[in-house]
Design a protein around this nucleic acid. Structure first.
Lengths: 119, 119
DNA sequence: GATCTGATTCGATAATTGTCAAGGCAGAGA
DNA sequence: TCTCTGCCTTGACAATTATCGAATCAGATC
C-alpha cells in the first residue's frame, strides 16, 4: 500500500488560493469544510496530532491515550478517515494509521497569510 | 479599535509546534479545536474567506452573499468572533468585520508539514 | 473447528448545532 | 420625538453528533 499512496493526491492539493487571497465559492467551501470540521473536536485534533507526529501508529496505542471507549475512538478515527486526513491499514491483528501530509498541507495553504518569503 | 488590537493575541499565537512534530496535550487540543470547529461549517468557511480576502467588510455585504436569513449569518459571525478568528467593529449604522491574521497564522503553523525550505 | 484479541459496526440516548421568525437595540434622519 | 434601517438576541425546532454497551468481524493461535 505504501506503493500506491497516490490515490487522491494533487487534485485535492491544488484546490484554492489562501483564504486571505480570494474568497471561496460555495462549492469549494462545502468540499473543504469537512476537513476543518474533523479537526474541530478536541479528541480528533489530539488523535490527529498523535498520528501525524509519528510515522504510523496502532489503534491500540491511540485508544490507550484517552479515557474513552474503543467504539468512540473508532468513530473519531472514521471521521478523520472520511475527511481524507488519515489512512488506515490493517496488518495482521492490528490496524495502523498514518497521516495524509497532502491534506494537512492543503489546509495549511488555505490558512496561509502573507507568506514572508513571498513578499 | 485598530489601536488596541491586542485583546487576546500573542498568548494564543505562540501555542504549539506543528501537529506533525509533537502531539498535543488534552488541554492544548481543547483550546485549539474551537477554531477548527468554527471553520468546519461551509457557511462559516466561506464567510471567513470573504472577510479575510478584504481589508474589512460590512455585514450587509456578507448577508447578501448567502441565501440565509440575517439571524443565521449573525449567528455564524458570532461563532467566528468567539473563536477569535475575526474582529467586529460597529461604525455608525454598520458593523464591519476583519480577519485576525494571527489566528489564521497559528492554525496554519499547526498544520505545517515538512516546510521544504526548512530541510 | 474453537477460542481469544483487536477493531469496527449497530442501536440507543443525551447533548450540540444550524436555521428561522419574532422581538429588541443602536444610530441616522425627519 | 418618531420612524426607519441595520444588526443582534431570544426562543423554538429539526438535524447532527458524541458517547457507550452489545454485537459483529478479522486474524492469530490453539
Amino acid at each position: 500500500m505504501s506503493k500506491q499512496r497516490g490515490s487522491l493526491p494533487e487534485v485535492v492539493a491544488a484546490c484554492c488560493p489562501p483564504l486571505a487571497v480570494a474568497p471561496l465559492t460555495g462549492e469549494q467551501a462545502t468540499n473543504l469544510a469537512p476537513m476543518f470540521k474533523a479537526l474541530g473536536d478536541p479528541v480528533r485534533l489530539r488523535l490527529m496530532s498523535l498520528i501525524a507526529s509519528t510515522d504510523e501508529i496502532c489503534v491500540c496505542d491511540l485508544t490507550d491515550a484517552f479515557d474513552l471507549s474503543g467504539p468512540t475512538i473508532s468513530h473519531h478515527l472514521r471521521v478523520l478517515r472520511e475527511a481524507g486526513l488519515v489512512d488506515a491499514e490493517r496488518r495482521a491483528t492490528w490496524v495502523w494509521y498514518r497521516a495524509r501530509p497532502q491534506a494537512l498541507k492543503q489546509l495549511a495553504g488555505l490558512l496561509d497569510v502573507a507568506t514572508p518569503a513571498a513578499v
